[in-house]
Structures are given as C-alpha cells and as structure tokens.
Computed example of a mutant assay.
Amino acid sequence: MAVTPLHLGSWRTPVEPAPRLATALGLAPDDLLVKRDDLVGPGGGGNKVRKLEWTCAEAVAAGSDTLVTTGAAQSNHARLTAAAGARLGLRVVLVLAGDAPRGPRGNLLLDALLGAEVVWAGAVDADGLQAAAERVAGEVAADGARPHVVPFGGSTTLSVQGYAAAGRELAEQVPDLRHVAVALGSGGTMAGLVQALGAERVLGVHCGAVPDAHVAVAHLLDGSAGPDPALRIRTDQVGAAYDRLAAPAWDAVLLAARTTGLVLEPTYTGRALAGLAAAVREGEVVPGERCVLLHTGGLPGLFGHAEAVARLEEGAGGSGQEP
C-alpha cells in the first residue's frame, strides 16, 4: 500500500549558531550549529513528529480509528502520538512500562491534557511491552474499534523517511556539514539521517533505550539482523541505565543552558551533546569541521525526570563545565 505522509509539522526547521557552546567544547566558534527539531509540530514538538507523519498516514490509509503505542513513563513518542491523534481525530491508547506514579508530571501531564488513555504494563522488558500493546490492541478491536499499533519510538522502515527528509534539509542548509550528532533511542532518527547523509557524517549517541543500538539502526536501514561496522555509534554515555541520570549528560544539559540559553533534557539531547563533547576530546571531531547538534526536543521529560528535578531543587548540582 502506497503511503503519502501527512503534514503535522512546519518544515524546514532552522539551524542556529552556538558559538559559546562550540568554544566550551573545544571547537572554533563557528563550527557548531543546532538544528531545532524541537520547535515544530503538535504537542510540544520534537523529532517524533517527522516519523508520525508516516506512521499516522499508514494508519489513516488503513482505515484505523485508534492508535496504540508503547513507551517509558516519560515517553516523548507517546506524548506526540497523543497530540497527533488529537489533531487527526483518532483515539490514542498509550501502553507504558511500569506502574502509575503517585503524582503524574512531565509528559504524563500532557498525555492527560491531550486526551490519551494510559494502560500501565508493569515491570516488563521490550518484548513484554510490545506483547502488552498487542494485547491491548486486541481488546480495542474486540470492542469494535480499528486499532493501528505504532511500534516503540515510532521507528519503522517506513517512518525513517521522515529523517531522510531532515537529512536532505541539513545538506542544503549546511553544505559543508561534516558531523551531525544525534541521540539514538529506537534508532529511526539516526537511520534516516544515515540514509540521506551517509554513515560517515552521522554520529549517533546511544541512550540505552534498546539492547543493541547497532543492530537496531542496521535493521531499520536494510532489514539486516546484524550490526553495520560503518555506523558511527557511541555507547559510552548511557551510564547506569536509560532512565537514570548520567553525570556527563547532566553536565551537558547545564553547559548548553548556561552558554547558549538552549534547554536540553538528560535522557536524549543531554546524552547527544555529551557524546559530541567526548568525540571532540578524543579527536574524532576536530576544530574546523562543521558540526550540527540535532535538537530532538523532549523538554517535558526534564520536568518528569525525578533525579534532574532533585538536582535543580538543590541548586543545579553540577558545574556546567565541559561534560
């Protein structure tokens, strides 16, 4: 079935210079730009909007009236699926890992505002979460609805076309682009960029959302079951776990805020900047090479991250120096 993407965002997103951040990282002032994919789309914006233009188009073309998707409690993808569903007039059911918190905050508040239904799956791994989503979809169908299950993170071989388009935008906006640093969650954002720009120009920073980042991206690119050695993926910024506060990521969040007024969050964008900083320190990225940090959004997740909130309540709890 041929699918034409919906229009949920306003493209192209701007690129902005970040000279003070570049200098703090050890780059030349004009080496670093930030692509602001946090600025567009319903529900607060973010990189998932580009993917949802394809996955929601697929659902609408199939005659579905309900979107079912999965995520962590503070999932940006879940929040933006809720927003896309509201815009399109589709019911949205979010199947989230864990148990209902005592007081919802961050993305969960926006999920409620946007009218999404939340089903808590308990302590499950990725396979268990997907199985829970399929079970919920079956229950929805038994009630007479027509559900469409959107995979974790919205990443499919179809939806990566959203970030292939972003890669083409970047190539036009920054003709001398040498590196684009991007958080790697479910893998679709990196896969699309690689498709458009080539593996040598895309630096993915693993956030711990999938067991094997190399395999996840390679599968989305060509359906292979094994890793692609050409992919540039840093796996050193995860820390204790995906949903825990990694010190370099937190320092990166503070650094971006205090040098540029740019608000990142610790799960994805903070790790992406920390990975870029590590690449500069190690000589993988050197002064004089044009770099882009892809800002994938996720601001509500900052307010839902208990450790980050505690640090801020304590007075930031970090140096704001180079991570």
Rank of each mutant, 00 (worst) to 15 (best):
V263F: 14
D243Y: 13
T23R: 14
L255G: 07
A84S: 10
A165C: 02
R244H: 08
N76P: 09
V60M: 11
L294C: 05
H214Q: 13
T235M: 05
D37F: 02
L94F: 01
R244A: 15
A241H: 13
F152M: 03
D212L: 11
A278H: 10
A18I: 04
G275I: 11
V149M: 07
A209R: 03
E289C: 12
V68A: 02
S75A: 15
D30G: 05
V118D: 05
L129V: 09
D37I: 00
R271V: 14
K35Y: 00
G187L: 07
V238E: 06
T235V: 14
L273W: 12
G315L: 08
V3L: 12
A225K: 04
A132N: 04
P101W: 13
C207G: 11
P42D: 00
A310F: 02
L67W: 00
A84F: 06
R311G: 02
L193E: 07
E139Q: 12
P14Q: 11
R91D: 02
A209V: 04
D38Y: 07
G71C: 06
R87I: 01
S64V: 03
N107E: 09
G297H: 06
D127H: 09
P227Y: 12
A278C: 13
S10V: 12
D143Y: 01
V194T: 14
G44E: 02
A133K: 05
W54L: 00
D127K: 05
R168D: 03
L262Q: 12
G297S: 08
P151L: 12
A252V: 07
A78H: 13
W54Q: 00
V263S: 09
E134L: 12
A100G: 08
V253A: 09
R234L: 15
E307P: 11
A116W: 02
G115D: 00
P19D: 04
L25Q: 04
A57C: 10
D31I: 03
W120H: 15
L80W: 07
V292T: 14
R178N: 06
A218F: 02
F303A: 12
L262F: 04
D222M: 03
A241Y: 07
A246K: 01
Q74D: 15
G298H: 05
S224E: 01
V3N: 14
P19E: 10
L25D: 05
E307D: 15
G71M: 08
A225Q: 13
V34G: 01
L220F: 00
H295T: 04
L52S: 00
G71S: 12
V238Q: 06
G204H: 10
L170G: 01
A191Y: 06
V60P: 06
V49H: 07
L8H: 04
F303D: 07
P151M: 09
L276S: 11
A131Y: 00
W120P: 02
A279H: 10
T4F: 13
G106P: 05
T156E: 04
G43P: 01
